[in-house]
Simulated scan of single mutants.
Amino acid sequence: MRLPGVVSFMIASLFLAGCSSTSGMDALDVQRPSNETTSSVVRPSAPITSVPVAKASNVRRLAEAAPVDDNVQPFGLAEEEAVAFPAPELPDSADAPVEPAALVSPPKLLSRAAPAMLAGPVTRYGFRDAKPINFGRSSPRHLAVHGVDVSRWQGNVNWEKLRAQGANFAYIKATDGGDHLDPMFMKNWRNADAAGLKRGAYHFFYWCRTAGEQADWFIRNVPKVDGALPPVIDVEWNGESSCKRRPSREKVLEKMQVFMDKLERHYGQRPIIYTAPDFYRDNLRGQFLDYPFWLRAVARHPSKVYPDRKWLFWQYSGSGLSHGVTGRIDLNVFNGDERQWRAWAGGRQMVADAD
């Protein structure tokens, strides 16, 4: 007598279980639409002069469980280049193209009222190296304008001594992820300028946070000042980070574009892309041709490590020694002579051709 009621109850239970289960959908490899395209730049056909920064409320926020690892040194993780590029090369057309961001007006040339912001006299190379490399005729010493990049890992920097040693510019770690500020950033930012170095700030990109969040965080913490060098986005695979995510090439390019668009709108300068060989091989070959690059190559010349890529800065050592810091420091060089440096650092920014 009660059997039909039991059967009905079982059927209803199975129906409800099927409606609440997501295992079937989870098993499908569905390409979800991006959550970050809302903050990308609308790219007109002509250059723009000024665009207001998009409000943070317009950026869709994603709940990210993984925190930024504060105990990881982002720059110069590898001591040697061990990445080989595959041959033959694939044509650039085989990759999904990324449309370049709209150009913005170059920074205004400064008046004589602010001479400290202009590029000062070039100090000649005087660094030592704990692990010197013989680059032969391609030695970075043949280039005129050398500089450094620093973070809290360099401790208290004596900027006057570093300047006297041969540092003409400094890129200073500012932020990583969407919630971490380098504790030495503001001190280094002020003191580098006081010592007469051209200064810029860099952001270490964290693949477990949205690009919009990271751009907003950088803008919140890095002053917009006349005479500063363009901002830098540092993109690399960091095996020591708490974030183990490695997005697809398509997603990497999209996230970078969103981040760089927002910075370009705010600072009026096209960001510089810093990268290392393995990340470049996986994601950046043939991409962002209208952006200046800062390339890490501590064992061979960039032309050997990054074929056919023009570059603006070369990080040629992660083991530099100077009287201005305790321990080692990253050494970099500008791809040009003194005249080109003064033109670029003075506001007329250009990408120097690779040798």
Rank of each mutant, 00 (worst) to 15 (best):
P247D: 02
D69H: 02
A343L: 07
G166R: 10
V122Q: 12
L181P: 01
A114C: 11
G136T: 13
S45L: 12
V157F: 13
F9A: 14
Y306E: 03
L16R: 04
P33H: 14
R220S: 11
P67C: 01
P88M: 06
A354V: 06
G320I: 10
M186Q: 15
D176Y: 05
G18W: 09
V325L: 12
A174Q: 01
A66L: 02
W341E: 00
H266E: 08
E240S: 11
E254G: 07
D261M: 04
P33Q: 14
V157Q: 10
A113L: 07
L77D: 03
L295A: 05
F279A: 06
K198S: 13
K251F: 10
F313T: 08
P223Y: 12
T49E: 03
M10S: 05
D193S: 15
W237P: 00
A63Q: 06
R199Y: 07
G346A: 08
G177E: 06
N332R: 07
I273N: 04
A27N: 10
A345D: 00
H301A: 12
R209F: 11
G178S: 14
P74M: 12
S23T: 02
Y280S: 08
V145P: 01
M10L: 13
A345E: 04
G177Q: 06
L14F: 05
L197S: 09
P302D: 04
R328Q: 14
M1D: 08
P277I: 09
D308K: 12
V148K: 12
G196N: 15
V232W: 02
K173C: 00
S138Q: 11
A130N: 07
W153T: 09
D176I: 02
S319M: 06
P33I: 14
V333K: 04
L109Q: 07
E80C: 00
N188C: 08
G227N: 01
I219Q: 05
L295Q: 07
T123N: 15
S39R: 09
D261T: 06
D226C: 01
R2E: 11
S23K: 02
P4N: 07
H146L: 09
C208G: 07
W344A: 08
A63K: 11
R128D: 15
L229S: 03
N188D: 14
D182T: 08
Y316V: 05
G155W: 13
P247M: 01
E236W: 08
L162W: 14
T210C: 04
A144C: 01
G286L: 06
W153K: 07
D337Q: 05
K310R: 14
K224F: 09
I11S: 04
Y306F: 09
A167E: 07
M260K: 10
H180Q: 05
L229F: 01
F127P: 03
A82I: 12
S20Q: 06
N168M: 04
A345W: 05
S317I: 08
A195T: 14
R339D: 06
I11N: 00
A96G: 10
A17F: 03
V53C: 02
D290E: 14
M184T: 12
K224V: 07
N238Q: 10
P115K: 03
M25T: 12
N71F: 04
E240H: 09
A65P: 00
T49P: 00
D179K: 04
F75E: 06
Y202Q: 05
A63P: 00
R249Q: 13
L162S: 08
P115N: 03
T49Q: 06
R300L: 10
N58V: 13
S45M: 08
R296K: 12
F259E: 10
V252E: 11
A56M: 10
V225E: 15
F127H: 09
R270C: 00
E338V: 12
